[in-house]
């Protein structure tokens, strides 16, 4: 809202004629605008002139005395005591109802108190349960972190081990941009790492195969990948495949199979 919009509301405000929403908006503005506050004071002084347009009228002569008597009474009360005295209690039918009401209120209060204690106990138990769960989650996270750390160490050791072999698998037309490496030691213990493979369809997994001349493809493990096509799986390379074998990855039904059925996505020796 522009400053001029506020200014346009000021005369109506001086007449107390603004609707509630406008009045609220202008009030907020007046708190921070000295200029508009002064203008409102000027308008109010002008609007007061309308009061003079009313016909003059004389109140009763008793009114003056009534006002002064009440003022004197207030002044006397203020001087005599700063404490307002309680009226003396009176026993009657209504006060009996008051007593019954007090008893009922006491009973309700007691019931509420018991309820509050029960709620407090339940809340306390919930807090303990949550603390326990948090602790378990932390332990699991720590364990997972530890597991990942161990796996990474194992992977590094495998890549750095004397006599370790590393084979690179390159993408076929089925998975442009994908890549994989398999590292294996002389015993055949191996680790396969992939990246950039297409997102797996439902009920499908990738599977590693060892292909050696004059033999049917030998199945290895089926594995899943994350949304970026990353996967890591520990496998054993058969001795016959270690020197002249080809490693290939295909898309297969969940759990893998004994013979490849899908297209090759990655393979070594390309």
């Amino acid at each position: 809202m522009k400053h001029e919009d506020y200014k346009e509301m000021i005369p109506a405000r001086a007449l107390s004629a603004l609707d509630a929403a406008d009045d609220r908006v202008l009030s907020e503005h007046l708190l921070q605008c000295v200029d508009c506050s002064r203008e409102l004071d000027d308008w109010q002084a002008m609007v007061v002139g309308l009061a003079v347009s009313a016909d003059p009228s004389e109140p009763s002569t008793q009114l003056r005395e009534r006002i002064l008597a009440q003022v004197r009474n207030e002044a006397r009360t203020a001087v005599n005591s700063n404490v307002v005295p309680f009226a003396p209690p009176q026993r009657n039918l209504w006060s009996s109802f008051g007593s019954l009401g007090a008893i009922a209120a006491l009973l309700v209060f007691a019931a509420l108190l018991v309820y509050v204690v029960l709620l407090w106990q339940e809340n306390r138990a919930n807090v303990n349960r949550m603390a326990l769960m948090n602790k378990e989650i932390q332990e699991l996270r720590s364990a997972q972190d530890e597991q990942s750390k161990l796996k990474a160490i194992e992977l590094i050791e495998m890549f750095e081990a004397p006599g370790a072999h590393i084979a690179e698998l390159k993408a076929t037309k089925m998975a442009p941009g994908a890549i994989a490496k398999i590292a294996y030691d002389p015993t055949g213990h191996a680790m396969l790492i992939t990246g950039g493979l297409p997102v797996l369809p439902k009920d499908k997994q990738y599977q590693l195969w060892f292909i050696v001349p004059n033999k049917s493809p030998m199945p290895s493990k089926a594995f899943s990948t994350d949304v970026k096509g990353r996967g890591m799986v520990e496998v054993e390379v058969p001795a016959v495949a270690m020197d002249s074998g080809v490693f290939a990855i295909t898309l297969e039904p969940m759990g893998g199979g004994s013979a490849p059925t899908g297209e090759i996505y990655l393979r070594s020796g390309i």
Binding site: A51, V52, S57
Partner: peptide, 11 residues
């Protein structure tokens, strides 16, 4: 001010 204020209130 009684007269002017009372006149206003009566109005």
């Amino acid at each position: 001010y009684r007269v002017i204020l009372f006149g206003l209130l009566v109005r």
